[in-house]
Computed example of a mutant assay.
Amino acid sequence: MVVTVSTAISATPQRIWDLLTDWENQGEWMREATDFEVVSAQRSGAGTIVATTVRIGGIATRDRIRVDGWQPPIGSNPAHLGIVHLGWVKGRGDIRLTNQSDGRIRLDWTERLQPPLGLPGALGMRLFAPLFARTFRRDLTLLQTLAERG
């Protein structure tokens, strides 16, 4: 299953990046996740591992992610944060920040998720696809509010 959501944010790329990579406080904008904990020795960059509890559609699981893409915003260069899901649901997520001509920052977030349990999991995930999209859109709205509030 692939879910892509996007928004334009009136904040600096660095402000957005700081919110994206403030691991313990991600629950402020990612409401389906709680109990964030950095479980690796390093706290930033590729190789960082973060554990969290994720609850969507009444199903909760402990998820671990490993950062595998780390390109912070420098000047007008695009930024990229890539993660690999290591928990019950496998897959990857990519968040990209690019400058728009109107001065805002475009944030594109794509999640490619592989369901557990074979065919039953695939059917279940397909049923939940609209809920995942709604959840990620809500997350981006909350992130936008936090970033623009400064």
Rank of each mutant, 00 (worst) to 15 (best):
N99T: 12
G118I: 01
D108H: 07
G27E: 12
Q114K: 15
P116E: 08
G27V: 11
R96C: 05
A133C: 07
A79R: 09
A46D: 08
A8G: 10
V39N: 02
G47P: 09
T12P: 07
S101Q: 12
T12L: 10
V54Y: 00
A60I: 02
G27K: 12
L117N: 04
L146P: 10
S44D: 15
D139E: 12
R112S: 15
T4L: 06
W23C: 06
E32D: 14
D94Q: 10
A33Q: 14
H85C: 14
D22M: 06
I83F: 01
G103K: 03
T61L: 15
I105S: 00
A79H: 10
E111V: 13
R149Y: 09
K90W: 03
H80C: 14
P116S: 11
W70Y: 08
M1I: 04
G58P: 04
R31T: 14
I95R: 13
R138P: 02
T53W: 03
D35G: 13
T145A: 15
A33F: 11
T12H: 05
F132R: 04
L117C: 01
T141Y: 10
T98C: 06
T4N: 04
T7R: 07
D108C: 07
V67F: 05
V54L: 07
D108Q: 09
V54F: 02
E148M: 03
T98N: 02
V54W: 01
T34D: 14
R62I: 13
G93W: 02
W17D: 02
V84L: 14
D35A: 14
P115T: 00
V84H: 07
V50R: 03
R106D: 13
V5S: 04
I74L: 14
G82E: 08
R126P: 00
G87V: 05
V5N: 04
Q26V: 05
A129M: 14
L119V: 09
T52Q: 15
G124Q: 00
G121T: 01
F136A: 05
G69L: 09
F136C: 03
P120F: 00
R55Q: 07
D68Q: 08
Q100A: 12
R62Q: 14
M125F: 01
R134W: 14
G75L: 12
T7F: 02
E32W: 13
E24V: 10
W70E: 05
V67Y: 01
G58E: 03
P73G: 11
I16Y: 05
T110S: 13
A8V: 12
P78A: 12
A11T: 05
T34H: 11
W23L: 05
V54Q: 02
D68V: 15
W109V: 12
M30N: 11
T98P: 00
D68W: 11
G91F: 08
T4E: 09
T61G: 11
R64V: 11
E148I: 06
L146K: 12
E148H: 03
I74N: 13
D139P: 02
G87K: 05
T110L: 09
V39C: 02
S40T: 05
P72N: 11
S44E: 15
P13N: 03
G47N: 08
G91K: 06
R64E: 13
W88D: 09
L81F: 12
Q26D: 04
T4M: 09
L127Y: 01
D35N: 14
G27F: 13
I59E: 03
E24P: 10
